[in-house]
């Protein structure tokens, strides 16, 4: 593939890498596995890039490839078996002082999210990223109605984990 294409891809990925990192955070539980998944998503994005027509935003396209890689294509590496405390590694607590209760609540929330299954994580990820139901249904390949129903169930499940 030509250099210009490679250059434009790397530039775009560098700019939007936060999306890929967020997918990695959801689906892995230590830094090695995070980097492994990041690597695999990068390869999949790069392989699909020549067909990227630009009729959708690069970031929107990244959500789909990123989630597809995490849910379907990625084979967990041996390294991902080693687990560390999820919130310590993946979600660094903000440095500015804020409410302790809120901090505690967030820790619990992230832990609860990590307990969801792959599809539920995808739904909650798209919700957290403020995607509308039309985008969610297109990304996952389910109807909008079913996306809504499932999203409500996932939210209820999260609330139940937090307030048993």
């Amino acid at each position: 593939m030509d250099k210009a294409l490679e250059h434009s891809f790397v530039e775009l990925l560098e700019k939007h890498q936060n999306i890929v990192h967020k997918v990695c955070r959801l689906y892995t539980n230590n830094q090695d596995a995070h980097n492994d998944l990041f690597q695999e998503i990068t390869i999949q994005l790069w392989k699909a890039y020549p067909k990227f027509r630009g009729d959708s935003k690069f970031s929107t396209w990244m959500y789909r490839v990123g989630l597809n890689t995490a849910i379907t294509l990625y084979r967990k590496s041996k390294r991902s078996i080693k687990t560390e405390e999820f919130e310590n590694v993946q979600f660094k607590i903000k440095s500015e002082p804020y409410d302790d209760t809120e901090e505690q609540q967030l820790k619990l929330m992230y832990k609860a999210v990590h307990k969801l299954n792959d599809i539920e994580k995808a739904l909650i990820f798209l919700y957290l990223e403020d995607k509308n139901y039309s985008e969610i249904s297109e990304t996952l390949g389910i109807t909008e109605v079913n996306a809504r129903v499932k999203m409500n169930r996932v939210k209820t499940k999260l609330r139940t984990i937090l307030n048993p």
């Binding site: 890498q17 990192h21 967020k22 957290l128 990223e129």
Partner: peptide
């Protein structure tokens, strides 16, 4: 609501500088 709190935190959170990859890191990944 807890979920609103989570959403607010999630969206305000960016990947730390140490964790971000530079173009120099990305090229070999390809």
């Amino acid at each position: 609501d807890e979920l609103d709190l989570l959403k607010k935190d999630w969206q305000s959170k960016n990947t730390s500088k140490e964790q971000q990859f530079s173009s120099k890191d990305i090229y070999p990944m390809l």
